[in-house]
Design a protein around this nucleic acid. Sequence first.
DNA 1: CTTATTATTAAGGAGTCCATCATTAGTACA
DNA 2: TGTACTAATGATGGACTCCTTAATAATAAG
Lengths: 392, 392
Amino acid sequence: MSNIPSRGGDLSRLRQLNSLSAIKALRGNGPVTLSALAELTGLSRPSTKEVVDELMELGWVEEVPPAPGTMGRPARRYRFRADGGHLVGIDIGAHNVRAALADLDGNVLAETRQAARPDAPLGERMATIERTVSGCLSLSGLTTADLWTVAVGTTGLVDTQGHIKLSAAIPAWNGLDLAASLQEMFPCDVLVENDSRLAALAESRRGVARGSRDVVFLHVGRRMGTGLIIDGKLHRGFGAAAGEIVMLPEAGWLTAPEELNDSGIVPAGMPPEDAAGYTLAAARNGDPIAREAVERYAEKLAIGTAAAVLLLDPEIVVLGGGFSRSADVLLPPLRARLEAVCLRIPELRGSTLGDECVVLGAIDYAIDHLDRQFFTADEPALRPPFPQEPVS
Amino acid sequence: MSNIPSRGGDLSRLRQLNSLSAIKALRGNGPVTLSALAELTGLSRPSTKEVVDELMELGWVEEVPPAPGTMGRPARRYRFRADGGHLVGIDIGAHNVRAALADLDGNVLAETRQAARPDAPLGERMATIERTVSGCLSLSGLTTADLWTVAVGTTGLVDTQGHIKLSAAIPAWNGLDLAASLQEMFPCDVLVENDSRLAALAESRRGVARGSRDVVFLHVGRRMGTGLIIDGKLHRGFGAAAGEIVMLPEAGWLTAPEELNDSGIVPAGMPPEDAAGYTLAAARNGDPIAREAVERYAEKLAIGTAAAVLLLDPEIVVLGGGFSRSADVLLPPLRARLEAVCLRIPELRGSTLGDECVVLGAIDYAIDHLDRQFFTADEPALRPPFPQEPVS
DNA sequence: CTTATTATTAAGGAGTCCATCATTAGTACA
DNA sequence: TGTACTAATGATGGACTCCTTAATAATAAG
């Protein structure tokens, strides 16, 4: 019954529903003929026509030239106007700020990255963010006025309101109302989330976990975190603190990276951010000491992972973050330990999205937000479309 | 967008939606006047009337005498015919088999319980089940033909198909296709689930966790288990193995009850099933040795609980199962340990449903099943109502 | 140039919902 | 007892959305 709206519907409601399913079909399938759309939505051709006409008038849909070379009268083709609005995803890490500009279909149009000092004061960091985003926008000749939503992923504990309760990696973040600060910068919806959770979302939408409804994402790198996709949705928890298994003392995740950093074979003078990678590479090449270090690391990793797998029984576990490049080295020992404990072993895969994981997740998060707004059940039939470009 | 059906709708679809929201309102609010129903569903009076007439014709709804003593013309009142079908919930434990008969609103009409030997052979156990249920039915003068759904909760690992993969407590269960066996006994839908999960469902629907969307239920007693309610729904996991945190070696849940059973103060000769209760009672009365045993128990309990809380950030954690009668003794040490580890402490409460927890959860599970069937999106507009009693 | 194929357009019909108004059944009070 | 008041009921007409069917238009193939 939960799928049934508690309030009954009007005739116009029916049209809204049909318009939305048409939009959904158009977004998912590229340019589409009217007949195909009718097939997809289950409506009759005349009704489909009427719906599409309305959507075109609103600016949501546009016509594209018919595909030549077919038998019979060529069918008119329509497509969703993904370029009618824009979304920005931002990944604010301790050492880097990344931004990506996307259209309403989530296609990335431009990307920028800028280094940052972890201990930079707040003003400097905000300026870095602003530069990164505006660089991204200028690549496509846009301004912040063209943005519909900005979604941000950052390290630390972000509450439901976008306050940062705690951030070990970025001192200036502690206690900041990041959502409010960014709101001053961008005149559109601003969403703030934990970076691991957004990475999980990206993997479940366009990464190795695509199609899986229950996903556990392990963010392994210099910092550790997890993100959970449950029943196809990002799980935030009541206080937006879900996925913080890193705090479980018995798993030892807080100190786990040290096993790789201080494995004893890392050459002196190597920058600390490369140490773990060195150990992992050595393990791949068969160095016995490195292998032992990896084993110890995997053992700790396995405890928290086993807790997540036993509790949630996900379809797939995705290994992401900085160390995911070494998934070939990490996954076998991790799998071995899970097999000893878990009742059903989920699929174990390394991330394929790499460093862009969080930005992409932020974009997907913004798209989810957009989708929720498409039809908010109470007031606006269809969200006002393109205020900046009046239709004839 | 996930809330929007991908297939567009018909006029009849709109009527279906409205019928369903009417049923939903009628089920939730007891006898209701037409005006009130119109208010609840958001439909106009004439439309509401038409919907209700249709539902009455189908047999879903009936009229009740108007409430006297009001100003103006007395309004006709309608109510959902909860007695039009019946559900049975069964709790198959190692030592007991419980059954409860409920109407379509989940009101319990009759209840039975029968002792069982844990190591009884399969035939004997199935006979016990049959007797328990038929006793329950005869109390209300019904037969299995009146049943719409039978939902069963039992100890052990139940897969998505209703096979029992593993059951330590009931040897005869191992490898059994319980759903198929029960299907021979009952000519209706049969659902099989893990008992802890059903208990969790009951707590979230009619227990202390009512209204919470994210719940962690701890089944503590001679056996341990957990059930998760996530986003208001029972979380089963991809292979229906969710909630088995008991298998995590680091938490020591498998051996945790021994701390209470072998606390050193239990009088010799006391039956093993009363030992833990004795220790808990002694701790409540201040016995220092018992308190230490409870502390050790709580410490183990806290590890697995912390894992669940950190991962899921639930609104509330419910302590259920046999030891929940001693929640006053168990919760304080558990809370103390969670506070040391968790970022946000959820509400901690003891169960109030007691021994009936699993049966009630089974009934709620059957109701969920019914609700899913009310409108299955493809074929049947409204599920055929009361085949056994033809309407004029 | 004709035929086959496919898409488009238009007209008629059915179902659902809403707003409005006269009618009805009860209570309250003189 | 009889009248005024109150609130629900029932019926009518209009508006909207969708469907089916049939006629029309545009292109490729022969």
